[in-house]
Amino acid sequence: MAVKLIKGKKAIFFTLIAISLVAAMALLYTPNPAAEINPGRFGTEARVKSTNALVADIKETYLESALKVSSHKAMIALTEHMKSNNQFLADFQGSFSEAVMMGTIDGQPSSTMRGNTMPEWLERISNVSRGTFNVEINFTAHNVKAYHAEPWKVDVQLNVSFSASTETAVWNMTEHIAAAQISIEGLEDPYYSVNTAGLYIKKVNRTNTTSAKWDASSVQNHLKWETYVHFPDSKAPSFIMRFENRSMNSSCCGIEGLANPQKLQTRWKAMQITCFSTTHGRECAAAFTM
């Protein structure tokens, strides 16, 4: 019965064959999204992009952060060195550069600078870049400078050249000037520390009083809280000048503060007892000179 029905009806087979062929063709030529991506090209592009972002990040952020921390530590290390030797620096720039680049002051290793010199920070980012992105970065750094452009901050500059290389591309950055600003607030004033043989420690603490608002009460507070002030026509030395015991005025950035006599007297008495009962020759001599 069925054979009879099908007999002579060839169209159905043609239709079936046609549909099957179309379906097979559709399956065969359907684009496979995964196969469309060229893994080699995709990989190279991704690597170039990630290395580019890394180089930009080092240039724009990392160098500044590292220089900031290294310089801040160098300021602390220099003050510590001056206090322990009870003498001012002959050349602030030279000593500062030595501390930042080599971790030594007058050839002596500084514990504060251990792990905080610029070459150490540069080596760290170089090692992590190699491990993370397989990027080889070589740095050369020189000519570190510290100066004042404003009274409450020290500006630091460092010349850095570096090259970053992968198997596909190379980045070169020559004589890039990395810059950072350090706030001097909270740092010890070396002038007091050295002149009192470490007996009177005074940290830079900026007054809130503006130049037009000085009165008896603000002067009292200035003395009580041992704050510092900057006057535009100041005759005082800047923070950096205090490392060299230079007492002439700074053209831009002189800061001045008063020593609290009560605090000084208390320590002075304690010092006298110490000096009469024991022998602290150098410290006592310095304090008596004050």
């Binding site: 900031k68 921390v69 310089s71 760290r124 980012i125 350090i182």
Partner: peptide, 20 residues
């Protein structure tokens, strides 16, 4: 996905990292 992370703690006193 990888990044390098670092940052400062406090007013320029300490730098942590760089870490992967």
């Amino acid at each position: 996905s990888k990044k390098i992370v670092y940052g400062t703690i406090g007013e320029s006193a300490e730098l942590f990292g760089p870490y992967e």
